[in-house]
Deep mutational scan, measured.
Amino acid sequence: AITFRFEGQEKAKKFYEKLMRQNLEATIHIHGDEVHVTVH
Rank of each mutant, 00 (worst) to 15 (best):
H29K: 08
Q22G: 06
N23V: 04
F4R: 10
E17I: 07
K14T: 08
E25A: 13
K14V: 10
L24I: 14
R5W: 15
E7Y: 13
K11R: 09
H40L: 13
T27Y: 12
H29L: 09
H36R: 06
T38L: 09
H36V: 10
A12R: 01
G8R: 05
G32L: 07
F4Q: 07
V35A: 03
Q9R: 07
F6N: 02
F4K: 10
I28V: 05
K11S: 14
D33P: 05
G32T: 03
E17Y: 04
G8T: 15
G8F: 10
M20Y: 03
K11A: 15
E34G: 05
T3D: 07
K18I: 12
T27I: 06
H29V: 12
L24M: 10
I28G: 00
K11P: 12
I28T: 01
V37K: 00
M20N: 03
L24D: 01
H36T: 12
I30L: 11
F15K: 01
R5M: 11
H29P: 00
Q9M: 15
E34A: 08
K18M: 14
V35H: 02
K14R: 11
K18W: 15
I30R: 07
Q22E: 08
N23L: 07
E17F: 04
A26Q: 01
A12F: 04
T38H: 14
I28K: 00
D33G: 07
I2C: 15
L24H: 05
Y16M: 10
Q9G: 06
A1C: 15
Q9P: 13
H36L: 12
R5T: 13
N23C: 14
V39W: 09
K14F: 07
G32N: 06
H29A: 10
E7R: 11
D33R: 10
K18H: 13
G32P: 05
K14G: 04
L24N: 02
T38E: 05
H40G: 09
T3V: 14
T3R: 07
R5A: 11
H31R: 08
A26G: 03
F6R: 00
I2H: 08
H40D: 04
Y16V: 10
I2S: 03
L24F: 12
K11T: 12
K14D: 11
L24W: 08
N23W: 08
F4H: 09
Q22I: 09
H36E: 03
T38R: 05
T27N: 06
I28E: 00
A12T: 01
A26R: 01
A1I: 12
K14M: 11
I28Y: 05
A1G: 14
K13R: 13
L19I: 08
R21C: 05
V39K: 03
V39P: 04
G32E: 08
K18A: 14
K13V: 12
D33A: 09
H29W: 10
V39F: 12
H31T: 08
F6Q: 01
A1Q: 12
V35N: 01
K13A: 09
R5V: 15
F6V: 02
I30Q: 07
H36S: 06
E7K: 14
Y16T: 03
A1M: 12
F6E: 04
F4S: 08
T27F: 09
G32S: 04
A12K: 00
F15D: 01
L19D: 00
R5S: 11
I28W: 06
L19Q: 02
V39S: 02
H40N: 08
H31P: 00
E10M: 05
T38K: 08
D33V: 10
V35G: 01
F4I: 15
E34F: 13
K13D: 05
V35F: 10
E10S: 07
F4M: 04
I2T: 06
T38W: 06
K13I: 14
R5I: 15
V39G: 02
E17P: 00
H36K: 04
E10G: 04
H31G: 02
F15W: 04
R5H: 14
E34S: 07
I28R: 00
Q9V: 15
N23Q: 08
V35T: 04
V39E: 02
H40M: 11
K18E: 14
V39L: 12
A12M: 03
T27A: 05
M20Q: 07
T3A: 04
V39I: 14
Y16P: 00
H36A: 03
H29R: 08
I30S: 05
F6P: 04
G32H: 04
F6T: 02
E7S: 12
E10Q: 06
E17R: 04
A12Y: 03
H40S: 09
H31V: 14
E34D: 04
G32A: 08
A26M: 07
M20W: 03
Q9D: 08
V37W: 01
N23A: 05
T38Y: 07
E17S: 03
K11D: 14
M20K: 11
N23R: 06
G32Q: 07
L19E: 01
Q9N: 10
M20L: 14
A1L: 13
H31Q: 10
L19S: 01
H29D: 06
Q9K: 09
N23I: 04
L24T: 05
L19K: 01
H31W: 11
T38F: 07
H31N: 10
E10F: 04
T38I: 14
Q22F: 12
F6L: 02
I28D: 00
N23H: 10
L19W: 02
N23M: 06
A1E: 14
R21M: 11
T27E: 10
G32K: 08
G32Y: 05
T27R: 06
L24S: 03
H29I: 12
F4P: 06
N23T: 03
K14Y: 08
H40F: 14
A12S: 02
